[in-house]
Design a protein around this nucleic acid. Structure first.
Length: 891
RNA sequence: GGUUUAAUAGCUCAGUUGGUUCAGAGCACCUGCCUUACAAGCAGGGGGUCCAAGGUUCGAAUCCUUGUUAGACCACCA
């Protein structure tokens, strides 16, 4: 620690030794907003590039998944903006009916208000208040992350225009005959008291009990039929027992009736091949009201339906017994009573699956109810086709299979929800039950008057359906509705920005949302909603568990930003986030991101501290500049290639290596003047240019630090931001200089290795002798080698060099002259190993080239490369053999 | 049960059309270093039977078959 302080005192200018993101992030974000750098409007001269944000829940707060997801979107949009496209990232939030309504209900409860005691209108007033107060926090949090959304375009799925779009959609689909109302077995959430779609249900494996119950057979004294059930409380709703017709054990009971225990109601014994003989007892109780399969069995056998549960999961009068009890309490009680009455044969531990509500966690009850449905078979066809033929591309493409199996087996979509927070279904009922679907009550009235000739009707005679629409029934319009494309399908925005380019979201909502947006896209615009879907992985903890509030294993994203800086968090997350792969979060990743920021910062500190001497000329630096530009050009090519394949992580890693290894460790070391020495003008200017380019390349990933440094490197106009600077374009790659430098770096590495092995201080300059036929090559790099490896002046020879450590690169031999003993044995061993390897390699290559089929079948350039490798190996072997002979001679 | 994806260093993962000396990166580990940009750092190093067994091929981490293990999705389990 004391050293750190001293170093700081010595530094030329008193700028922070470590990068301090807290000081600059707010400053630059404000600057970006004030100058409207993220704002976009249709511009016919520019190519549009648009992304719509997956709208987070309006009451939600930022979690790690959002961080990853939105960072990727920001990278894409910032890069497109720098590439001169008209980049538009539309932000917004989702009203999330179940989740939000649950929160409002809880809030009201705290204030002593029960939902059932207030009217719908009052409730909605509270809900909007709640939304205005707590809603949209997440959008502010996205700003902390650096998200470059066009904030003036912020949308909310319940705002008037989007609300109308949803209503409009419903009416149009109803009129097309795509929406119908019907009684179906639905997933019922007894806590939320609403129907749920299959996608909103989560299956959980639990240990349950399987109860074996015996039903007395009527007219056969002492005979029983035993069934196995996990839900003994539903026996009061039984309307039959069912066995497989081929089951010989039960042949005698075909056509008989049995008596429900405790209740003493008679029910028939029916037969159906649906029953599996070897599960449980092979005898099934049929409860049409409370089980989907039983329901279907009931329809087939024309059985009555007895629904013994109310909306809240309590037993009603139809149950006769345990009326008013909660279903789970009733289960405990009936088991006790059955045991006492002797009808409980046995209990078994049983691994079972229960369905629970995604939002409330309540155990789902299959329930018959009257709901609204959207027919999916026809409307989903283009959505399947256009993903399968790659008009819309999924990244990674493995999700195509999952997508197909879902789309080929779609069920009609239950779109009604028994909630208040959401778009109320625009269906109006006359007193006789006639349904009139219209955008408003007024229109419905007019329709009733004209179509049914009921001119005496008034608005009071119409009752609107109390239900609201599934949240996804509004979010499936998102890419269209944010541009107002439902009501005004030809407006300037939608014509320009739609179809959007890329969608970034998690695979968990591929069907909920992505598939349905595609459906809506083709239905309403006859066109895809986006061209590419980038599916991010799920962020998990180190043990691979999904991050969740209940487990408490998720770090607070805002604390992370505070601690490591937004750029550190962004780049850290992306270091290991290939598309579709889950990301095992570890603070180590973010630390790496922060360290990267710090590395860049320190490179800047070095450059910033230089003084320029206009009279100075350092020729060798030009080689370094040329080399780095070649490396940078190659990297830009790689980065663009990665981006074209959505390899966002790989692109970042390429840049990371370029900055850390090539720029900092090599380039800056090559051109760096000695301490307190000035730098020449040409090198300085080239370095500033390189630095600016690097900042631009990194900007999409690390917007804040790159803006800070880019602004500091040169004088900029007030409204000139790196946000809108031009993304670098690759020049031609000078492969010759890259190859030459590879040799130089290998040499430097070998010298350093020797120094390390001999425990020599880096301060001691080592004498280097080179035996080569290509003196010109090394000649031009002498200064660089001296600087990087700290050698004395380099000499050349054709003779053997005594008292030295030697090694071979290509066909050249190098000697480092050392005082004292040289370990000849060790040197011999190393050389022998190297020789063996090369001889082996040579043999393999020779064999390959001797193989006619290889020479005939392989690509010509490949064969040529093999020949070159063989030649290299031969010359290296020759050099090594000479070296070994000499070493033996010394011995 | 059906479909599907994967298995590469201690950990997390790259490895793109089968062909560069292809077996790689980061983290972790080991050795040395407070060298005036950076110890959040520098220089160097060790570490893998590419799940197994067959097959195709001039050539296999890569393609095929079978098996093992793990995950995902869908369906069903009274």
């Amino acid at each position: 620690m004391p050293f750190t302080l001293i170093t700081t005192l010595y530094s030329i200018k008193m700028i922070s030794k470590t990068y301090a993101p807290q000081e600059i992030e707010a400053k630059w974000y404000k600057y970006w907003l004030e100058n409207k750098f993220f704002a976009s409007k249709p511009n016919p001269d520019k190519e549009p590039y648009s992304i719509v944000i997956p709208p987070p829940n309006v009451t939600g707060v930022l979690h790690m998944g959002h961080m990853l997801n939105n960072t990727i979107q920001d990278v894409l949009i910032r890069k497109a903006r720098m590439e001169g496209k008209e980049a538009c990232w539309v932000p917004g939030t989702d009203h999330a009916s179940i989740a939000t309504e649950a929160k409002v209900v809880a809030m009201l409860k705290e204030r002593g208000i029960e939902k059932k005691d207030i009217s719908r209108e009052e409730f909605l007033i509270y809900a909007h208040e709640w939304k205005d107060k707590y809603g949209g926090i997440i959008l502010d949090q996205l700003q902390k992350l650096g998200a470059s959304c066009d904030w003036d375009r912020t949308r909310f799925t319940m705002e008037p225009s989007l609300y109308e779009a949803v209503i409009d959609t419903f009416v149009r689909l109803y009129n097309k005959g795509q929406i119908y109302r019907g009684v179906r077995m639905v997933n019922w959430d007894p806590l939320g008291k609403t129907a749920l779609s299959d996608e909103e249900v989560i299956e959980k494996e639990i240990m349950a009990k399987l109860y074996y119950l015996k039903y007395p057979v009527s007219g056969m004294e002492g005979e029983f039929m035993t069934i196995a059930t996990t839900r003994p409380e539903t026996i009061m709703a039984d309307t039959a027992l069912c066995v497989n017709p081929n089951d010989e054990r039960y042949l005698a009971y075909h056509g008989k009736t049995v008596v429900i225990p405790l209740l003493n109601r008679e029910i028939p014994v029916i037969t159906d091949e649906y029953v599996t003989m070897d599960f449980g007892t092979g005898c099934l109780k049929v409860t049409p009201a409370h089980d989907l399969n039983d329901y279907e069995l009931g329809i087939k056998h024309k059985l009555p339906v007895i629904d013994i549960l109310d909306d809240g999961g309590f037993l009603n009068e139809k149950a006769v017994l345990y009326v008013g009890q909660d279903r789970f309490a009733a289960r405990r009680n009936i088991v006790k009573d059955l045991e006492e009455s002797g009808h409980l044969v046995k209990m078994e531990e049983y691994k079972s699956i229960v369905k629970t509500s995604e939002r409330t966690g309540a155990v789902i009850e299959p329930k018959l109810s009257l709901q609204w449905f959207l027919k999916m078979d026809e409307i989903s066809k283009p959505a399947l086709e256009n993903v399968m033929n790659d008009n819309i591309k999924l990244y990674p493409s493995k999700f195509k299979n999952t997508y197909r199996s879902w789309m080929e087996n779609v069920h009609d979509w239950c779109i009604s929800r028994q909630l208040w927070w959401g778009q109320q279904i625009p269906a109006f009922y006359l007193q006789d039950g006639t349904i009139i679907v219209a955008k408003t009550k007024r229109e419905a009235l007019r329709k009733a008057q004209h179509e049914y000739l009921l001119f005496a009707l008034t608005e009071e005679d119409l009752t609107q359906d109390p239900n609201v629409l599934d949240t996804w029934f509004s979010s499936w319009l998102w890419p269209i509705s944010v541009f107002d494309g439902i009501q005004n399908p030809d407006n300037e925005d939608i014509s320009y920005y739609y179809p959007t380019n890329d969608l970034v979201t998690g695979p968990d909502i591929l069907f909920f949302w992505v598939a349905r947006m595609i459906i809506a896209g083709y239905e309403w615009r006859g066109e895809l909603p986006f061209r590419n879907v980038y599916l991010t992985g799920i962020v998990r903890d180190k043990q691979g568990r999904k991050m969740s509030k209940s487990l408490g294993n998720s770090p607070d994203p805002l604390e992370l930003i505070e601690q490591y800086g937004a750029d550190g968090v962004r780049s850290g997350l992306l270091f290991s986030a290939p598309a579709g792969n889950d990301l095992l979060y570890d603070d180590k990743l973010i630390e790496q991101g922060r360290n990267f920021c710090n590395k860049i910062w320190n490179a800047y500190r070095l450059v910033e501290g230089w003084e320029v001497n206009v009279n100075l000329v350092v020729n060798s630096n030009q080689l370094g500049i040329d080399w780095f530009n070649a490396k940078m050009n190659q990297t830009i090519i790689d980065v663009q290639d990665h981006f074209s394949k959505f390899r966002i992580s790989d692109a970042l890693l390429s840049l990371y290596n370029l900055v850390w290894d090539d720029f900092c460790s090599k380039y800056l070391e090559i051109i760096k003047p000695a301490y307190e020495q000035p730098i020449d003008k040409a090198t300085f200017e080239a370095t500033i240019q390189i630095f600016e380019k690097l900042m631009k390349l990194l900007h999409p990933y690390m917007p804040f630090i790159t803006e800070e440094i880019w602004q500091a490197l040169a004088t900029r106009a007030d409204n000139e931001s790196i946000c809108r600077a031009t993304f670098p374009i690759a020049g031609t790659v000078d492969t010759k200089i890259v190859a030459d430098f590879d040799i130089v770096f290998e040499l430097v590495s070998k010298i350093r290795d020797t120094r390390n092995a001999k425990q020599l201080s880096p301060k001691i300059a080592l004498p280097l002798v080179i035996k080569t036929e290509n003196k010109a090559l090394y000649g031009q790099f002498e200064e660089i080698i001296q600087k990087l490896a700290n050698t004395e002046s380099i000499t050349y020879t054709n003779e053997k060099v005594e008292s030295s450590i030697s090694f071979v690169i290509k066909s050249d031999e190098f000697f480092i002259i050392l005082e004292g003993e040289i370990d000849v044995e060790a040197a011999l061993e190393t050389a022998q190993k190297d020789l063996e390897y090369n001889v082996g390699f040579k043999k393999a290559t020779e064999a390959k080239l001797a193989n006619e089929r290889f020479v005939a079948n392989a690509k010509p350039e490949l064969v040529e490369r093999e020949r070159q490798k063989l030649a290299d190996a031969e010359s290296k072997i020759k050099a090594l053999e000479e070296m070994i002979l000499r070493l033996k001679g010394v011995k």
